[in-house]
């Protein structure tokens, strides 16, 4: 945390997240993040830990957490886990519906 209390590098956090999602084969365009949350924990390099979900072009949703791997000495998305039945799980979430619209077009009610 910096002296003024603002974790710096939030824009960079997003860039790292995008890079790590690319590495997992989640192509862009064709994916959308939702329920993204800054977690108030500063990682090496003054990046803030971030959690969230990603909807892929295949309709699958994974939850992820931008973390620091002590063993790999690098950033990673961990945990990384698929959420089953995402439409049932998130159908009422405005963020998911926006993500769905971004990837597939407007979601039917």
């Amino acid at each position: 945390m910096t002296p003024d209390g603002i974790p710096p590098g939030s824009r960079t956090s997003r860039a790292i997240i995008d890079h790590l999602l690319d590495a997992r084969g989640m192509d862009r365009p064709g994916r959308a993040l939702f329920l993204v949350q800054s977690e108030g924990v500063t990682l090496p390099g003054d990046l803030e830990a971030v959690s969230g979900y990603v909807l892929g072009r295949d309709g699958r949703v994974h939850r992820w957490w931008l973390s620091w791997s002590e063993t790999g000495n690098d950033y990673e998305l961990s945990p990384w886990a698929e959420v089953p039945d995402p439409v049932d799980a998130f159908g009422n979430d405005a963020g998911f519906r926006d993500a769905w619209s971004e990837v597939f077009g407007r979601m039917s009610d």
């Binding site: 945390m1 108030g40 979430d93 963020g95």
Partner: peptide, 27 residues
């Protein structure tokens, strides 16, 4: 202690103790 929820108040998005107390939420 800090808790955040979505704007529609339906989802809890996080809960933690901040690194620098009240300054975190002020800033």
């Amino acid at each position: 202690r800090f808790t955040s929820v979505t704007e529609d108040l339906r989802r809890i998005t996080t809960h933690f103790r901040t690194d620098n107390g009240e300054r975190y939420v002020v800033l």
